[in-house]
Simulated assay, not measured.
Amino acid sequence: MYHSVGDCSDDPYRITVTPGRLDAQLGWLRRRGLRGVPVAELLAARARGAGRDLVGLTFDDGYADFVEHALPCLRRWGCGATLFVLPGRLGGDNAWDPLGPRKPLLNADGIRRAAAEGIEIGSHGLTHTDLTTADAATLAAETAGSRARLAELTGAPVTGFCYPYGTVDARAADAVRAAGYGYACAIDPGPLTGPYALPRVHVGQRDTPVRLLLKTRLHRLRRRAAAGV
């Protein structure tokens, strides 16, 4: 789970990695015989009993720096990714973050450019609203409404959703399923499991090869415990 790729000198939420750090992390994956891919591709491979050499890469929020900094790194290492964007904030900024700098978000042309490069475009909701506290009308707009707007913008079906703030409960997951998505990503969904509560590992600027290895091992152990295995 990535967010912004750029200057991380003022980064109170630790959501930014520099292009150099991203490049090093992707290189680490490739040297281990792994390749970053969109989540939809990973899930399709796993459904066929394959994909042990694949890692789903996600970038939340749709920051404008994705096109400038992340895409060249992904191309260099032959990787793909899923970009979760906010169609209700096209060309806006991360107004939901009270601390830190204002980071510009991709506009419609930027999202289309990423899609043209083979990046899977998914929804991060309409405006980055916590779905677990949303009323029925807001929940519908953030799930079904955002999916319809993204499909119109890209001209392609939208199968992936990412819960804002990573927060999910059964009601939010049911709304995402009802809206027609094929899967949804959280961070640590607790007791929820399955395609509409996919867990992810946060990757940040401080994640060197040693830390990445530890994170992957701890992540597996934590999810096995959550599933009662």
Rank of each mutant, 00 (worst) to 15 (best):
L99D: 13
T132D: 03
L26K: 03
Y181C: 12
A170K: 08
L22P: 02
A144H: 08
A148L: 08
C8R: 06
T138F: 00
G125H: 03
A44M: 14
L218G: 13
D169M: 14
V55S: 12
R211K: 15
P164H: 06
V39K: 03
A47P: 15
L34R: 00
L26H: 05
A116Q: 13
H202V: 14
T16I: 01
E120D: 12
G180P: 11
D130H: 08
G56Y: 08
Q205A: 14
A170I: 11
A115T: 05
P199H: 10
G6I: 03
A225C: 07
H219V: 10
W77V: 01
A141Q: 09
F66M: 10
L106S: 06
G204C: 08
R102Y: 04
D207T: 06
W28K: 00
Q205M: 12
Y163C: 03
I119R: 00
C185I: 14
A140F: 04
T18S: 13
D65S: 12
L221I: 10
T127S: 13
R52T: 12
Y63N: 03
P189F: 04
L198Q: 07
E120I: 13
R35W: 01
P19S: 06
L213S: 13
P98R: 08
K215N: 12
V55Q: 11
A184I: 11
D65V: 08
P195G: 09
R177C: 11
P38K: 05
A136M: 00
P38L: 02
Q205T: 12
R113D: 06
P104V: 03
E68T: 09
